[in-house]
Nucleic acid binder design. Structure first.
Lengths: 251, 251
DNA sequence: GTCAATACTTTGTCATGACAAACTCCAGGA
DNA sequence: TCCTGGAGTTTGTCATGACAAAGTATTGAC
């Protein structure tokens, strides 16, 4: 009954001429209100039926909008009780983005040095990870990633040749994932293993670390929506400069 | 038209007397067929309209079942094309489980030694992580986790006292998350940071590692569905024995 | 033979209506 | 006082119907 949303009809109107789906418009508006704190943490939002009527949309549409925010961890719903704000910002699921993208987004001035680039038949371990036939041609690249002028990560990747041919110039100027996306290849699913180990002398030298320094390791295989393996990567990061942040949500 | 599902009406029937939602029944049946390989990778499943009719359920119900499997990474949909199997097993999102649960599931015979357990006012850093008022009473615990007879991880945790009082015996016999769940507290959302560093001499001694060995670090804060902080943890793992596995899906 | 327009298929979005299940709260009785 | 029962509220599930948008395949013109 007493809702924080009452009297705020204006910011929740929908535009039926827009190509943006109604449920998404509603979700976005709600998200804005929550992020701005106009609907505080702990507050209950109006019930679905009333909200739908007030917005002039159907209940399924309203439900879908709310569901969207529930999946993002902003709202929770309880049958017989209502829908409540639990967190003012989106808790994103783990992102499938590349290191390069992350650094660009974080203003950390990434630069990439391509140490090696060659086409060779995939050895068994890599063929296995990519779920392709051993001996299939892959592009094997070795890159050194800098951030803010310092070396940050040493990255080894294998990309099946028929997925995307790569050049040194491309790789020096763009992140791998950006190149994939530009060619219509969207990583959709990935499995990662994150571990740690001590740097080998060569790695220490390359990364400007002391002998035996701790490195964060990550191996990943990524597939596109069609189930085709796009990329296998084996990376090491300077633990002193980098860590992985994850947001998880269960249920 | 030509569908791998045709003529397989039997294994896809639904039980309307069951309390299990119809959409979930359909999703489960489909998942079984895919996992068993009866619908192969790459194969298109019957279109929603026909499938719904054949099952005797409505199209929204069918859609919801398919949507469920799409979110789990087994299927992909394309408008105007159809729905296709892309992976024969569920690609789970990152699980919100405890190390203890993982070890039990992996038959690695976990054992826990409680090194410290005391109630104290939360220092600023912990209060900050838990989003509670500084000085609020928390239970501070320090545990050594063994697997297969060997030390594996050194774990520090803070649990607000009003969330759950803990005893040494409880903690020695059960994982922290199991204890939370037993008391009706379900971790729902968490943020984790995974990094690495070298072991301090004390840590090396405790974990039976060499001086300066690489350790995998994880700090985590977990909230329940109501947005209440349940737990803050700062753990170190022997990198030689443990790594994190993640399955991601985007889009 | 090649290319463009058209028809068809399939998923995406939305509305309306109905009932069920879980929870809260209050009133009435032991 | 306690606690039990029922009314009311709110989300969960499901059905039916309709049109839109995107992709594929076919057909027809040049």
């Amino acid at each position: 009954m007493a809702s924080e949303l009452q009297g705020r009809v204006r910011p929740l109107e929908v535009d039926r001429t827009s190509p943006v789906p109604l449920y998404f418009q509603v979700a976005t508006r709600l998200q804005e209100l929550i992020e701005k704190g106009e609907i505080g943490v702990g507050a209950r939002i109006e019930n679905e039926v009333d909200l739908a009527e007030r917005l002039g949309v159907s209940r399924p549409t309203t439900r879908r909008a709310i569901q969207y925010l529930v999946e993002r961890g902003m709202l929770i719903r309880k049958r017989g009780v209502g829908t409540q704000v639990v967190h003012p910002k989106v808790r994103r699921p783990v992102e499938l983005s590349s290191l390069y993208d992350d650094l660009v987004a974080g203003d950390r001035a990434p630069r990439t040095e391509v140490l090696r680039l060659e086409v060779l038949p995939a050895p068994d371990t890599i063929a296995n990870a990519l779920e392709i036939a051993p001996g299939t041609d892959v592009t094997w690249i070795e890159r050194l990633r800098y951030a803010g002028g310092e070396p940050l990560a040493l990255m080894h990747n294998a990309i099946p040749l028929d997925v995307l041919p790569l050049t040194r110039d491309d790789l020096a100027a763009h992140g791998l994932y950006e190149l994939l996306r530009r060619n219509g290849l969207t990583p959709r699913i990935a499995t990662q293993v994150i571990g740690a180990r001590s740097a080998t002398p060569a790695e220490a030298r390359t990364l400007d670390e002391k002998r035996g320094a701790s490195l964060l390791t990550m191996t990943r295989t990524a597939w596109d929506a069609g189930g085709r393996a796009l990329e296998y990567g084996s990376h090491v990061y300077r633990a002193s400069r980098y860590s992985f942040e994850l947001n998880l949500s269960a249920g």
